[in-house]
Computed example of a mutant assay.
Amino acid sequence: MITVAHSSAYTETGDLEMYYELHGEASAHRPLVLLHGGVCTVALSFGAVLPALAGTRQVVAPELQGHGHTADTGRALTVPALASDVVALLDELGIEQADFLGFSLGALTALEVAVRHPRRVGRLVLASAPYTQDRFLPEIQDPASGSSRLPTPQDFREMADAYAAVAPHPERFQDLLAKCSAAAHAPLPWTADDLRALRAPTLLVIGDTDFVRIEHAAEMRDLIPDARLAVLPGTTHMALMRRTALLLPLLHEFLD
């Protein structure tokens, strides 16, 4: 079993008191920023992969606005605001450039950092992220569709339990769900030209039964100048970051 150094703290980014974790030790590798999925915590999104990733580098893992230990504010939950919070955290930690691994909402946030602050991003891993809303499968936009691609009742129980265990206001879980739903349906702030302008080497990862169309992920691979695409077989959106036997070799090869 891999064991790594671990600490946690809070930092103020504007009106937000953001919780973050540090795992591993500084090394010759750039720090790696992990950005979790919507309605998740660091542990829920990355618990399966974090120990191995932190075995060779320092990992910075914040919890985004309203998620986990980080209390919500009165502002809307938007991808540009989340990205600004992450950049402010890097400033506070004195990190000029890092690699990024984002999952779902965290991947959208990582993409926004790469587009608006390209010098801050070394390598970029986007797990289950489109760049426009119409690239989601239609049934994903309708929670009543009953699609097997959507989170299961067990998934929602895990999210609710993880939130209740650490949130400053555990009673606000439904508020977080509503804000994340609004963010998930909001227009995304990028164009094809934004992807063409990316200079960070990029790894796109989706499951073959994910929220995102496989052909859209292939379109993103073609737009980003230095991009590659991995489609994990037999993998839903919620299972993606737990497929360690497939995922960790890809991440190590790409990041190292």
Rank of each mutant, 00 (worst) to 15 (best):
E139W: 06
E139N: 07
I140W: 04
I140P: 03
I140V: 14
I140R: 05
D142T: 08
P143K: 10
A144P: 04
A144G: 12
A144Q: 13
A144L: 13
A144T: 14
S145Q: 01
S145P: 01
G146E: 02
G146W: 02
G146Y: 02
G146S: 05
S147R: 00
S147P: 03
S147D: 03
S147N: 03
S148H: 07
S148A: 13
R149M: 09
P151K: 06
P151N: 07
T152G: 09
Q154M: 13
Q154D: 15
D155A: 14
F156G: 08
F156Y: 14
E158K: 13
E158C: 12
M159G: 09
A160W: 12
A160M: 14
D161E: 15
A162T: 01
Y163T: 06
A164L: 01
A167M: 05
H169Q: 11
H169S: 05
H169Y: 06
P170F: 08
E171Y: 03
E171R: 10
E171I: 04
R172E: 11
R172M: 00
R172A: 10
R172S: 10
F173Q: 04
F173G: 04
F173V: 01
Q174A: 14
D175N: 11
L176I: 08
L177I: 15
L177V: 15
C180H: 15
C180N: 15
S181D: 15
S181R: 15
S181F: 14
A183Y: 08
A184Y: 12
H185Y: 11
L188I: 05
L188N: 00
L188D: 02
P189I: 09
P189W: 04
W190M: 01
A192V: 00
D193C: 00
D193Q: 10
D193K: 07
D194N: 13
D194W: 05
L195D: 04
R196L: 07
R196G: 12
R196F: 08
R196N: 10
A197K: 13
A197S: 14
L198K: 07
L198V: 08
L198H: 08
A200P: 10
A200M: 08
A200D: 13
L203A: 09
L203P: 11
L204W: 09
V205A: 08
V205Y: 05
V205F: 05
I206C: 08
I206T: 12
G207L: 06
G207S: 07
G207D: 04
D208W: 04
D208I: 09
T209L: 10
D210E: 03
D210I: 06
D210H: 06
D210W: 03
V212Q: 06
V212P: 01
I214E: 12
I214G: 02
E215A: 14
H216T: 10
H216E: 12
A217T: 02
A218Q: 11
A218G: 09
E219V: 11
E219T: 13
E219A: 12
M220S: 13
M220W: 07
M220G: 10
R221A: 11
R221P: 05
L223P: 11
I224D: 09
I224A: 07
D226N: 15
D226I: 13
D226H: 15
A227M: 10
A227Y: 06
A227Q: 07
A227V: 10
L229F: 02
L229K: 02
